[in-house]
Design a protein around this nucleic acid. Structure first.
Lengths: 343, 343
DNA sequence: CCGGACCGTCGATTCGATTCGACTATTTCA
DNA sequence: TGAAATAGTCGAATCGAATCGACGGTCCGG
């Protein structure tokens, strides 16, 4: 309510002096500073965000671009959001949510053009993501959480898909599994899918590993279908790696329907699933992947550095995915090696 | 980038004319309007949010106050957030996240004083919630999602705890259960807990229903402890109603440890758990409660109405909780009536 | 045919903070 | 001792849009 002019009047100085006292841009004598501070306290003065933003071209607001149809939420999104929001706040920034679809280019253009936000965090980045060009054109600095097909020259934070895939594959091979399945999401050219393939190839030193990959829709039904397909293409399958949170329920349900007990008959592991969700599953789901909250925080850090004038070449940060062993993976049973096709 | 002055120059009119053309506040001739629109297109003009906010005292930003320690997120929060964000956006508003703790009164005071937001949505409202006074003092209109101890005169949207409790209790009694348990959260004076108690009392027409209530911490461990306590105080218990998402994993785990199969030996039902989470559990969890996304939307609606100058007395909206029957509740077995104490 | 009601437009002021140039008083150094 | 640097403060311009009062022109009714 109170304005700078009010404070100035009460402290018996000019408006500019108050401003300098607040920002520290120019030296102010101790006595004057004290009077001003007292006046600010008395009047409960809070600088007006708009006036400040108008003149200084800095809003201290960053936005989180999260294309999300409400109704089919990914639980892990929440971790990113909270991780980012919390950290941004600690750094003196506000976090604004932008949920419009990836394709809503015009809306985004307008949003970016308003000058409301200092920068943006991009989530659910697609290989060819139209939002990137919009932000570049509008001159809004941004950091991606995930990455597009050609991220050269762009800042991003992402899970280390190669390393995570390797850890996951290694674990299952170590348990004796040789016939693996992979369930991905519907996104084109999922980097994780590729990473798994590579990891299997690399590890496959005469082990004769079999890998079947399938893309599932993000729903229980999608998971069911994926499971049926997997079993159809590789009846002797003993372990499944899932990179699609929303399909897990269907996979579990279907595996029960097909009479495959987890982990006795079938091991299952999910990538990038939050711990509290994994704990809910019976048996508790073994997972692999970095902490979403931490990635969110790192993305904020990276963005804020740019806002502070960092002109270094594009920074790209990968997060190691830890393996969280719970109860959904078990050593392969010997019987499976011989006769696993007759169920 | 382009300003109103640029547009005015290009269209050969004055700044004020452009402004009137944009807002429609005063009549503008068709030919002039067209020239202006063309100029705006040519220059890709977007009104500056700060200048607009400074002059008009309206930011078209609302904030969502969601005290959340990242690390222990409630999956249902995400539904509220996305429901609210999406709807706000549709209504031409931006949604800003504020994650500071309920007790961080000073931070909130400053935030509210900045004039950045037109209004606020309050989540995780406590019986005695200091944020309420802060917002009232700052003159920031707000709507609560949930309610405090004395919500008279305040706008809120909430689940209809009485009705939901009644539906839940009725369902279990209908299945023959007479020894019930209730697991609540750590919040003081949880209205749901009370509602359950009342519902049991009301329904108890000589049925001789037994109800044991316990508060659990929001964690797997909390759920485990609650289960042990429940079993200790009421060994013959056959059904549990849970109003604490984060304790469910512990309850499930403990019930397995104690050899109680769900739903054969023990029925379990969770209030206000999102469908996609309930589907993950084995067996799929029966739930009761309204749609979080819908509540989020309704809260936005209510708030925006106030921002549009609605001066009606406080609006208070309760949402019916639908029962979603999945697989975690079953008819009580007759044996339980006679000898359920000897496990 | 003249006065008032409207229409369409413009100039000037305002919102509240930032910042540049200028000015005074004091200090520093050659 | 005089020139230059420094500390401390002020006034005024500025950011970009909203809005009020005013003004010339058109139209209508009496």
């Amino acid at each position: 309510m109170a304005t700078m002019a009010d404070v100035a009047r009460r402290a018996g100085v000019s408006v500019s002096t108050v401003s300098y006292a607040l920002s520290g841009t120019r030296p102010i004598s101790l006595t004057t500073r004290r009077r001003i501070e007292q006046a600010m306290l008395d009047l409960e003065y809070t600088p007006n965000a708009f006036a400040r933003g108008l003149k200084s071209k800095r809003s201290h607001i960053i936005s989180l671009l999260l294309p999300a149809r409400p109704g089919s939420p990914q639980p892990s999104s929440l971790e990113y959001i909270l991780g980012a929001a919390d950290h941004a706040q600690r750094c003196g920034y506000h976090l604004m949510l932008w949920t419009a679809d990836v394709e809503a280019v015009d809306d985004l253009t307008q949003f970016a053009g308003q000058g409301l936000v200092d920068g943006a965090l991009l989530m659910e980045v697609r290989p060819e993501d139209p939002r990137i060009q919009v932000l570049v054109d509008a001159g809004v600095p941004f950091t991606m959480i995930g990455r597009n097909a050609d991220p050269a020259g762009l800042d991003f934070v992402d899970a280390d898909a190669e390393q995570t895939a390797e850890a996951a594959v290694e674990h299952l091979l170590g348990l004796g599994h040789r016939r693996l399945g992979f369930v991905g999401g519907p996104s084109v050219r999922n980097p994780v899918q590729n990473a798994i393939l590579q990891a299997v190839k690399r590890a496959d030193a005469g082990m004769n590993v079999d890998l079947v990959q399938v893309e599932a829709e993000c729903s229980t039904e999608g998971g069911r279908n994926a499971f049926a397909w997997l079993l159809h293409s590789s009846p002797k399958i003993t372990a499944i790696i899932v990179a699609n949170e929303q399909a897990v329920s269907g996979l579990i349900r279907a595996s029960a329907d097909f009479g495959r007990r987890i982990p006795d008959d079938l091991s299952m592991m999910c990538l990038d699933m939050p711990a509290h969700v994994a704990e809910l599953i019976t048996p508790p789901m073994t997972t692999a992947g970095p902490s979403a909250a931490e990635i969110g925080r790192a993305a904020v850090d990276m963005l804020l550095r740019r806002l502070d004038g960092d002109v270094a070449p594009a920074r790209q940060l990968l997060f190691r995915g830890e393996l969280n062993l719970r109860g959904s993976c078990a050593p392969v049973r010997d019987a499976d090696h011989q006769t696993a096709s007759d169920r």
